[in-house]
Measured scan of single mutants.
Amino acid sequence: MDETGKELVLALYDYQEKSPREVTMKKGDILTLLNSTNKDSWKVEVKITVNGKTYERQGFVPAAYVKKL
């Protein structure tokens, strides 16, 4: 869990989004878990840094590609 009590997951593999509802992640990324009720895909939040500014983006990733921490 992070400092706000949200559950975290670790990306086990790289994943490139295939639709606007998904998010891209790299192996080793730590993501905030938002919903894990679907056995196939979990909703997560990723933090992306562009030019020194951090943005948050929500979307789905394959459940088999992440592990709860």
Rank of each mutant, 00 (worst) to 15 (best):
M1I: 13
M1V: 12
M1C: 15
D2P: 13
D2T: 14
D2R: 10
D2V: 14
D2A: 15
E3G: 14
E3T: 13
E3F: 14
E3I: 12
T4N: 13
T4H: 13
T4K: 12
T4W: 12
T4M: 13
G5K: 15
G5P: 14
G5W: 10
G5E: 13
K6S: 10
K6Q: 10
K6C: 15
K6M: 10
E7Y: 10
E7S: 11
E7I: 15
L8T: 07
L8H: 09
L8F: 14
L8C: 15
V9M: 03
V9D: 00
V9T: 01
L10R: 08
L10C: 12
L10A: 04
L10F: 08
A11C: 14
A11S: 04
L12Y: 02
L12K: 03
L12P: 01
Y13G: 04
Y13M: 12
Y13H: 10
Y13R: 15
D14E: 04
D14A: 05
D14Y: 03
D14M: 04
D14Q: 04
Y15E: 02
Y15P: 01
Y15G: 01
Q16G: 07
Q16I: 12
Q16V: 14
E17F: 06
E17L: 06
E17W: 06
E17A: 15
E17D: 03
E17I: 05
K18Q: 14
K18S: 10
K18N: 09
S19D: 11
S19L: 07
S19Y: 08
S19K: 05
P20T: 09
P20D: 12
P20W: 08
R21V: 11
E22N: 03
E22W: 06
V23L: 11
V23N: 01
V23F: 12
V23E: 01
T24E: 01
M25K: 01
M25F: 13
M25R: 00
M25H: 01
K26Y: 09
K26A: 06
K27Y: 04
K27W: 04
K27S: 06
K27L: 04
G28N: 06
G28Q: 00
G28F: 04
G28D: 04
G28H: 03
D29Q: 13
D29H: 04
I30W: 04
I30L: 08
I30E: 00
I30G: 01
I30R: 03
I30Q: 03
I30V: 11
I30A: 01
L31V: 05
L31Y: 07
T32W: 11
T32P: 10
L33Y: 01
L33F: 01
L33R: 01
L33A: 01
L33G: 01
L33C: 06
L34K: 03
L34Y: 02
L34V: 10
L34F: 03
N35H: 05
N35E: 14
N35W: 05
N35C: 13
S36D: 15
S36W: 09
S36Y: 06
S36R: 07
S36E: 12
S36V: 06
S36M: 09
T37P: 03
T37E: 14
T37F: 09
N38K: 07
N38C: 11
N38M: 09
N38A: 08
N38P: 03
K39G: 09
K39Q: 11
K39N: 11
K39D: 10
K39M: 09
D40E: 12
D40F: 14
S41V: 14
S41I: 14
W42C: 06
W42I: 02
K43S: 05
K43E: 14
K43I: 14
K43A: 06
V44E: 00
V44Y: 02
V44T: 00
E45C: 15
V46N: 04
V46Q: 12
V46A: 09
V46L: 12
K47C: 12
K47P: 04
K47M: 10
K47S: 12
K47L: 11
I48A: 06
I48S: 05
I48D: 04
I48W: 12
I48R: 07
T49M: 11
T49R: 09
T49L: 11
T49N: 10
T49P: 03
T49H: 11
T49G: 03
T49W: 10
V50C: 12
N51R: 07
N51V: 04
N51E: 11
N51K: 07
N51P: 02
N51Q: 09
N51M: 09
N51Y: 07
G52I: 02
G52L: 03
G52E: 05
G52Q: 04
K53E: 12
K53W: 09
K53I: 15
K53A: 10
K53C: 13
T54F: 08
T54Y: 09
Y55F: 12
Y55V: 12
Y55D: 04
Y55W: 09
Y55C: 11
E56N: 14
E56W: 15
R57V: 08
R57N: 04
R57P: 01
R57D: 01
R57I: 10
Q58E: 08
Q58D: 04
Q58G: 03
Q58I: 11
Q58C: 09
G59I: 05
G59C: 08
G59Q: 02
G59K: 00
G59E: 02
F60T: 05
F60H: 06
V61N: 02
V61F: 02
V61L: 02
V61C: 06
P62A: 04
P62C: 06
P62F: 09
A63W: 03
A63I: 04
A63P: 07
A63M: 02
A64H: 11
A64K: 13
A64V: 09
A64D: 09
A64E: 12
A64C: 15
A64M: 11
Y65N: 05
Y65Q: 05
Y65K: 07
Y65F: 13
V66L: 15
V66N: 01
V66M: 05
V66E: 02
V66C: 11
K67C: 15
K67M: 14
K67F: 08
K67P: 02
K68N: 05
K68S: 06
K68L: 14
L69Q: 04
